[in-house]
Design a protein around this nucleic acid. Structure first.
Lengths: 197, 197
DNA sequence: GCGGTTTCGTACCATGTGGTATGATTCTGG
DNA sequence: CCAGAATCATACCACATGGTACGAAACCGC
C-alpha cells in the first residue's frame, strides 16, 4: 500500500547509467543524475540508497545489458574466435550511436579524489575479473590454437589492454570503423590456422 | 625588486604534476595541490594563473620530462624498433617506482563534468597528435618493414590503443613486468625480418 | 471515510569547491 | 632610511556538492 511511485526504477537507472557512462562517477553530480532520471533528489535516495549504490547498480546493469555479449563470445571455438568476438564486441559497445563513447568501467573512475577510491578499486577489480576469465578460457584451449610462444595469462592481459585502449580512443573521438580496424590489425597477428611448425 | 618568493616554481610544478597524475584534473582539489606544493593558495594563483593553467603547465612538463624518450624512439630504424622503443618506453613510464601509476594524459580527464570539457578535449587532441606523429613515421618506412597488409594509420592507432590500454592496466595495479610482457606479446606478431613472401 | 503507509516536492544542512581581497612582510633602488 | 614593489599569510567570497527533514499528497485495507 502507500502512494505509488510515479517513475519506473529500471528506466531511471538506465538514464543514470548514461550519465555515469558519459561523465564518470565523480563527474556526474546528483543534480545531473536527478535531472536525467526525471526524479527528485529524495526519490532517488529512497529508491537507490546513495550515489555510490546507484553507481554500483548502474554498473551491474551495464555488465548485464551492454556487456552481455561476453559470455557467448568467450564460448566460441577456436580460441581465436573467442578473442575476435570479444574484441569486436567491445569495439561496437564502445562506439554505439545511442550510448556514450567508451566504456563505463574505464570512464567511470580511472583517476579520482581519495573520497572515491572505493569506486576506483571496484572497477579495477571487475576489470581484473574479466581478464582472469579470459585467461582461463585461453588456458583451456589446445596450445595449437594460441599464437606460438605466448602464455595464456600474457595473451589475456594483452587482449584486455587492447580493449581498454580502444575505450580510451573511443572517448577521444574514434568511431566504430576506426576501432574495428584496430581489432583487425591485432587479429592479423593471430594465425587463423596453425601453420606446420 | 620586491619580496623574493620563498619557493621554487619548477619544484612546485613537479609536485603539482604528481598530484594531477595520481588524481586527475577534477580529482585534484586546490587544497590537495597547495598542500603537496608547500604553497599557499594566493601564491599558487600568482605564480600559475588558475587551476587549468597549472594543469596545462604540468602537462607540458610531463611531455618534456616523462615523455621525452618519444622523439628518440620514433627515429629508430627499422620501424619495428621505433614501435618497440615507444611501447617499452610507455610501459616503463607508466610503472615507475617514484611516479604515480598510469599516464597523466589518460588519468587526467577521460570522463568529467561539463565544466572540464576543455581539459578533456585538450588531452584527446594531444593523444591524437602523438598518433599522427607515429602514423607519419610508419608511412615513411619502407613497406617491407611493416607487417603485411596493414595500413600505417591503422598500425599507429593500434599501437596507441595498446599504449593507452597499458595505462589503464597500470592504474589498475599492473606492474612493470606485466606491462613489458604485454609489449612483448604484441611485438611477437610483428615480423623481425621480412620473410620471403 | 478513516488510519496507516509510502511517495512526492520544497526547502534546507554542513562541507568543500575554485578563486580573491587585504594587510603585513620583505626585498631593491635611490 | 625611506618609497615602491612583489610576495607572504589569513580570512573570506559565492557557489556547488552529497545528503535530509518535513509536511502535503495519494494510495490501500478496513
Amino acid at each position: 500500500m502507500g502512494r505509488p511511485r510515479e517513475f519506473c526504477p529500471d528506466q531511471a537507472l538506465g538514464q543514470a547509467l548514461q550519465v555515469f557512462w558519459r561523465q564518470g562517477y565523480e563527474g556526474a553530480s546528483m543534480s545531473d543524475l536527478t535531472e536525467a532520471m526525471g526524479i527528485t533528489r529524495p526519490s532517488l535516495y529512497a529508491a537507490f540508497g546513495n550515489k555510490e549504490e546507484l553507481f554500483r547498480k548502474a554498473l551491474d546493469r551495464y555488465e548485464s545489458h551492454v556487456m552481455g555479449f561476453m559470455a557467448e563470445a568467450m564460448r566460441r571455438q577456436p580460441a581465436r574466435e573467442a578473442v575476435a568476438g570479444l574484441l569486436y564486441g567491445f569495439a561496437d559497445a564502445q562506439s554505439g550511436q545511442d550510448t556514450p563513447a567508451g566504456c563505463l568501467g574505464v570512464n567511470g573512475a580511472l583517476a579520482c579524489s581519495e573520497a572515491s577510491e572505493p569506486v576506483r578499486q571496484e572497477l579495477a577489480r571487475r576489470r581484473g575479473a574479466v581478464e582472469a576469465q579470459l585467461a582461463e578460457r585461453l588456458r583451456a584451449a589446445p596450445s595449437e590454437e594460441l599464437p606460438p610462444g605466448a602464455e595464456p595469462e600474457d595473451l589475456a592481459r594483452y587482449v584486455m589492454a587492447l580493449a581498454q585502449g580502444m575505450a580510451v580512443q573511443a572517448k577521444s573521438g574514434a568511431g566504430r570503423e576506426a576501432l574495428r580496424r584496430v581489432v583487425a590489425t591485432a587479429l592479423q597477428a593471430w594465425p587463423e590456422r596453425v601453420a606446420a611448425a
